[in-house]
Amino acid sequence: MVRRTDIKRYFAAQLPKIILAPSGLIILVITYGFIAWTASISLSSSRVMPIYDFVGLEQFIRLWSTPRWYIAVKNLFIFSALYLSIATFFGLFIAILLDQRIRAEGFLRTVFLYPMALSFIVSGVAWKWVLNPGLGIQNVVRSWGWTSFTFDWLVNPNYALYTVVIAAVWQSSGFAMAIFLAGLRGIDNSIIKAAQMEGASQVRIYVSVVVPMLRPAFLSVVVLLGQIAIKTFDLTFALTNGGPGGATEMPSMFMFSATFERNQMAVGAASAMMMLAAVVAIIVPYLYSELRKPANDH
């Protein structure tokens, strides 16, 4: 005979699942449902409106036959390489400085993390003011008397992409710092003290002992910033709008333009699926390495 207390315990144990079930179902439908819908559109001949026919990989062939797509992919590779390397370096450097137990550490952590609390649209608009030759750095320096000073990267096709890198690094370095600092604080002090007793310098300890132990933090930073780089849209849209002359156009902007401006919905969906494939290529190895840890530990 089932007792009332057993029923209460059962429902108490299942209560979190019952509460989270509606939200989980909504997320499941919205996220994976729209991924499936985008995949079906990429295999159709949709233009202005969805058409639920099947044309195979025609849109993907068309996508990779478009020179503008190759420019967007090239820009993404350059942006991602610079963004990941510089943001990771600055994040690690700041974390090591803060790990010295300096004064006002809490205040400095807040200062470095604050940019991440802003939306990329806000950052893009702010940096557009700073980098605009008629309003920002160039105008200010020339007003001081240096009339020959030039800093027109924002409107120069050869350098415009680097302005996006500057803004993105400024916004994300604090995030990388927080991850590295958490990793540094998780390292056993006895290891560092043992290295000090062996006569190793502080620099040597960090290079040979501490940094190699931050491998999980490095992996997390690369994965998180990597997927941010692939999906970058709002920062570029606010800062350069893909210009000048497509010099800063990314795959996300290509997708937006193809879908909503050039009436090529199927091509836009195909580009979205290629971006999804790139994100999956980053996340899957990370998940694999994380999920196999318990088995190895066992």
Rank of each mutant, 00 (worst) to 15 (best):
A269D: 10
F77H: 07
P50A: 08
A217I: 04
S23H: 01
T110E: 05
P294Q: 07
R3I: 07
F60R: 06
F11H: 09
N263R: 14
R68W: 07
V279C: 13
I283W: 05
M274I: 14
I35L: 13
A178C: 03
P212I: 04
A117Y: 08
N241Q: 15
T248K: 05
V48N: 11
M213H: 12
I230F: 04
S65I: 08
T38E: 12
G226E: 09
W144H: 03
W37P: 02
A117R: 01
T259A: 15
E198I: 01
G174D: 10
S65Y: 02
G183T: 01
I7A: 13
L214D: 01
L154C: 05
I121C: 00
W170M: 05
P22K: 03
E105G: 03
G56P: 09
D53E: 07
S40P: 01
T240L: 04
Q202K: 13
S220I: 12
E58H: 07
Q171K: 15
I96G: 06
N189Y: 10
K128D: 08
R215G: 11
G186D: 13
F90W: 13
F60N: 04
R262N: 15
W146L: 14
I191P: 11
L98W: 05
G136M: 05
T147Y: 13
A182H: 03
P115R: 00
I282D: 09
G24T: 02
L84W: 03
Y286H: 14
F54I: 01
S190V: 09
S271Y: 06
K231W: 05
V279Q: 07
Y162I: 07
G183N: 04
S289R: 15
Y32F: 15
F233T: 02
F89H: 06
A238V: 02
A117W: 08
F90N: 03
P251K: 11
P251E: 09
F120G: 00
G33D: 05
L161Y: 03
S220G: 08
L98Q: 07
M274K: 00
S289A: 14
A194I: 08
I230R: 03
N241G: 14
L84P: 06
I7C: 09
V130E: 01
L57I: 14
L225S: 00
T259I: 05
F151S: 00
D188Q: 12
A194R: 08
G243Q: 03
N75M: 00
I96R: 09
P50Y: 00
A39I: 08
L181S: 07
I41V: 14
T232P: 00
P50N: 00
V165Y: 01
S40R: 15
F34N: 13
A200N: 11
Y10K: 13
M49E: 12
L82H: 04
L235N: 02
